[in-house]
Every structure is written in C-alpha cells, then in structure tokens.
Design a protein around this nucleic acid. Structure first.
Lengths: 330, 330
DNA sequence: TGTTTGTATGAAATCGTTTACATGATGTTC
DNA sequence: GAACATCATGTAAACGATTTCATACAAACA
C-alpha cells in the first residue's frame, strides 16, 4: 500500500509538503498541490490511520460494548449511538461480548490499547474492576442501562419507578395473584424487582410468586410453565426483560391460557412481537434512542472536558398500555 | 499512559528487553523478567496496539459492515462471526451503515485505513466501486447475503430455490390467489421474486399481485393493507423479508383476517414473533449462524492465502412449516 | 541597499513498538 | 588456554504519519 513517502517521491516534493497539502491547512502552491494530487490518484494513496493515531493520539473513534447485540434494546442503542456520533465526526466500533465477562474484559482492554477516544458500555456485574482500571488511565467511559460506580457517567431508566408504574397498572386491572419473573445476576432486574414489590406492598398485596432465572428465552419458558401450571397459578405475570417474556409468552400459549382473562401479561422492553400478537402486550418501553443519544453526548462532553464531574442521568420508562392486562374496573 | 520506555527505565533495562520479555519468546533471565514485571505492574503498563500495528501490520482485527444492526438476521450474523473469529484469535469491529451508501463507503474507507485484516460486508447496490477499489489494495473481503462481483468470496443462501420451495408449499396448501410483497433495490429480494414466479409458473399460475416497496415495517404495512383490502384480495401473502412481514402481519391483524383460512401467510427470515403469534407463521429460516461462520472462515482463509481464487458458497434455506398456511389437501 | 514580511518548502524529531545486528558474559570442549 | 557455543542484553533502524524549526526566495518597505 502506497505511503506518503511514495507520493512525495513521485511528486518530487518532501513528505512534509504532502502532509500539508492533505490537511490543506498551510501554504502550498497551487501548482504543487496539483502535482501531488496527480501522484495521489496514480498511487491510490490513502493516509494510514494507524500512523496518524500513533502520532497525535486523537482517534475520533468511539467504542460501544454491549452484552448481546441480538437483543433489540442493544441494537437500537447501537444505532442511536452511531447516528449521534456521526453528526459529530466520530465513528463507532461495536463490540459484542455475548454476556461473557472474559470477553468483556478483553474488549475493554483492546479498546484501551486501540486508543479509542471513549467507551460506552453496559457493564456486567464483573466489569467493575476493569472499568476502574481504565478510568485510572483516563479513558472516558459512559455506562448505560446498568450502574458501574459513582465515578462513571451513567444513563439509564428509573427501573424501580417504572416497575412500580407497571405493577400499579396490573393491580388496577383487578389482578390479585401477581407473579414476577426476573433475571438473576442483573442489576437492572434487581431494581425492577424492588419497584414490583413496593407497588404490591403499597396495596397491601404481596407477590404471588417470584422466580429468578438466567435471562434467556428457554429459561423463561421453563420458569413460566412451572408457575402457570401449578395447582395455584397466578392470575397475572410480569417479566423483567424481553427474552424472559418471549419464553414466558410461549408458555402461556402452550397452556392455551386466555390473556388477559385467565392470566394478565406484561413486561419490560418492547420487542416487535408484543405488537403482533393478539391481544397485544402491555409493556414498559425504554426510550432507547434517547438513552443512546444521551450516552453519546455525555461521552463526547467528557472527551472534551475530562475533568467534569460524573453525572447520573435517569430517564423515564414509558408505560404502553395494550390489551394483555384487564381493563381497570371503574 | 506509560510506554515501554517508562517500563525499561524503571526496570533499568533497554526497551528491547522489555519487548522480548512481553512476547516471552527469547532469552530473558528470570531475575530480569521479574524486575520488569514489577515495573509493568507499578506503571500499569499496556502495550500500545496502535504502535504494534504500525510496526508489523498484522492487526488481528476483522470488520463486519452491516446495513442494519437492528435486523435480527444481521445481529445474529454478527454474533456468529464474532464467535468464530474469537476462536482464531481475532476480534471484530461491527459497523452499522443504516442502509446509507455514503456511510457504507465511509466505513469501508475507514476500515482500510485502520489496517484491519479483512472485511465482511453485506454490500448495498452502490458499494461495488468502493469494494473493487479496496480489492485492488489487496484488502481481503467477503460478501454475505448479497453478491458484489465475481472477484469476491461470497456466502449467501440460494434465494431463488428457497423462494420456490416456499411458494410450492403455499400452493400445496391450496392457495390460488397468491400475492407477493418484495423489497425494492435489493439483490436478495430480486432473487426471491424470481423463485416465487418460477414456482407459480410451474403450476400454471401467475402472481395474483406483486408489490415492491422499501423494506421497512411501515411500508410493508401500507402495501399489505392496500392489497388485502382491495375488492379482489389475495388468499395468501408471501413477504420477502422480516421487516416487511412484520408490517404486513399487522395489516392482516388490523383487518381481522383469519389465518390461514382467509389468507395464508408466509415469509423469509424467522423473527421471534413468528413463533409467538397464533397460528405461528411458516417461514424460510436462513442458516444465519452457518452463514456467519462460513464467511468468517472464508475470510481467514483468504487472509492466510491471499491469492486463492474467490469462491461462491450457497447455503440452503430451511423451510419451517407452521400453521399460517393451509394444510396440503391430501 | 538593507531590512522586513509573507509564502513555499525541506530536514528532522516524534509517537510506541519490534527486530536485525552487535556485543558481552559465561561455560564447554579439545 | 584458545576457540566456540549459548545466553542475555543493548543499539539503532523501521513502520507512516504530523509538526517544529530552519531556510530560501520573492516582494515590500525604508
């Protein structure tokens, strides 16, 4: 691949002149400029970003590290981050950790070594030490969806409040025996569970049953099937995440239960299928786009002004009432 | 950030020794090794990948450029590529172009400047010139899902054959007035449309109606609504992609049509919702994981052996019969 | 004419690595 | 004890860019 040296040689100038002409800043005679341009075209020259980055460490590249790119929340997030970053002249590398802490750490390490300008991450429980290490190296970091520590800029929804609101809504529909299906090992599920229980307590109810399991579809299916086919089944089910809800919904179908008469159904996140099924499913929709944009903005601000103090931004989840919960009794 | 020089100084050795000790290849006295390790720990030293990459241009980084990371096909693809690459010691940068040819070109350019080891891309129609340019620069490229030219390794499913098979299946169910909803400006939709029409022709039928529109949910909704609410509606609808199908399905619901009695429904791709709705939707499932792995394998092969001739790999789509098409009349 | 100013260019240092080559020390072999 | 491996380390060049500093020439000014 042609380098600046080749271009310089071909155009009969020094590499300094070529460099100047490329960044078209300072004085380069029009005639020289043209001559260099010809050489560039002939050689198909492209400046080597790696060398540029080594020289003056400003990469204009952001990293987005997500646990599961297949999760619509994260893919939408990725898109939002990408879009906003682009308007500011930044590109985004997306890294998928597949929920694997080892991989997460590896990507974090890789990104710091790659000298990216900053990192947006939805950290796993185990990420904290590594994040703190990067923080010490003054690598700007924004945490989304989950908290990693006070020292990091963070953007997430008020999970507890949202869960309260959703639970209230189910209670208002007259459901009494409300069960919850929550992810385990998840900060987010934790917060949602709190809101769930607070709302019940406020109505002198308690959870009919709470199950926690790994946040995957099959696990959700199994857990929901067990709950719903017990001798004393719940009359409503709330799920803490899309994948869990997908599995749970399939369990409901499997048992041929009528929604919402036999069992109410509601969940967090707003996967496509909740609008395709009949009756459509009531959900808490995360303002994903907004989260992504906010995170990107925050990161760029920190890049510009590394010493600003960390902010924690909580956005509101949106309750989208559809038909999977009974109508409130007037 | 501490550099190798700092470590060398602190440990009282030359940078060469530090470098050797890090790559732990050649002779370094145990005692020296330990001394250096101490310095590394104290300084929190991490080798600078950018410098490494500049020195010996082997990045062990792959780029995956997709048009829509929100599309489950691509997110699953990303995961498959990521996973396979990892087993071979490669990391993957995922880039999202949002179906924008300008962005696509920019990422392609960026990746070549970043000296990635190779690129996997699902190219837009307009990508060809840029791809050829990169090809001239000897950057290994694998095209997935769509074709870009003979000179590129390519992995895709046999769309025409799969569409034939799907259409046959619908015909076998006794549907007669079969309409098609196909994406426009898409190589893939093109191929599928051919298979659709060939299958019909083979049964002396012709398409009841074919609409082509941008492959988004809302466009699918509008187009399907128009077709289904006409005075002479189809008795089955085949959609060429997940997004289109999502919109179309919502249109079916909106009109309260019974599936499969009033209208049969089938589509390409296997989004989650097709298994959640009742009756579940018959689909052609792409062997997405397999596609991703094959593409990654192919790319790595080409990286190792740049001169091998390009191969075109066609995988089979899998027909998944569910209940949205009438039972074959025996 | 001599000094100043503005424009156009080149030489060389620098970023953080790896590595070919050189050198020094130690031990082995005849 | 001379010759020779073997091991351990250092020196310096290279990768491809940017940028500071120096230089050269012209035009402008006194």
């Amino acid at each position: 691949m042609a380098s600046i040296k080749d271009v310089a040689q071909r155009a009969g100038v020094s590499i300094a002149t070529v460099s100047r002409m490329m960044s078209n800043k300072t004085f380069v005679k029009e005639e020289t400029r043209e001559r260099i341009q010809v050489a560039i075209d002939e050689l198909n020259y492209r400046p080597n970003r790696v060398a540029q980055r080594l020289r003056d460490s400003q990469s204009h590249i952001l990293a987005l590290i997500v646990s599961d790119i297949q999760n619509p929340f994260f893919s939408e997030l990725a898109r939002a981050v990408e879009t906003l970053a682009r308007t500011r002249g930044y590109s985004v590398f997306i890294c998928n950790t597949d929920e694997d802490p080892v991989l997460e750490e590896r990507y974090l390490e890789l990104m710091s070594q790659e000298q990216v300008a900053g990192v947006i991450i939805s950290p796993s429980r185990k990420a904290a030490p590594k994040l703190k290490a990067l923080h010490k190296l003054n690598i700007p970091i924004v945490s989304v969806d989950r908290r990693a520590g006070d020292e990091f800029d963070t953007v997430l929804i008020d999970n507890t409040e949202a869960a309260q609101r959703l639970t209230e809504h189910v209670i208002a529909g007259g459901h009494q025996k409300i069960a919850g299906l929550y992810g385990e090992n998840s900060f987010t599920a934790e917060e949602r569970l709190v809101g769930f229980q607070e709302a019940l307590a406020a109505h002198n109810l308690s959870a009919h049953e709470v199950r926690r399991c790994p946040a995957f579809e099959n696990e959700g299916y199994d857990a929901a099937l067990a709950m719903l086919s017990s001798s004393n089944p719940p009359d409503a089910l709330i799920c803490s995440s899309a994948l869990l809800a997908t599995g749970a919904y399939r369990a409901v179908q499997k048992l041929g239960l009528n929604i919402p008469d036999e069992v109410g159904f509601a969940c967090f996140d707003d996967p496509v299928w909740t609008r395709c099924v009949n009756p459509a499913v009531t959900v808490i929709r995360q303002p994903t786009r907004h989260i992504g944009e906010t995170a990107a903005e925050l990161l760029l601000k920190r890049i510009e002004e590394p010493s600003r103090s960390a902010s924690l931004i909580r956005l509101q989840g949106e309750l989208v009432p559809r038909e999977s919960v009974r109508e409130p009794v007037a």
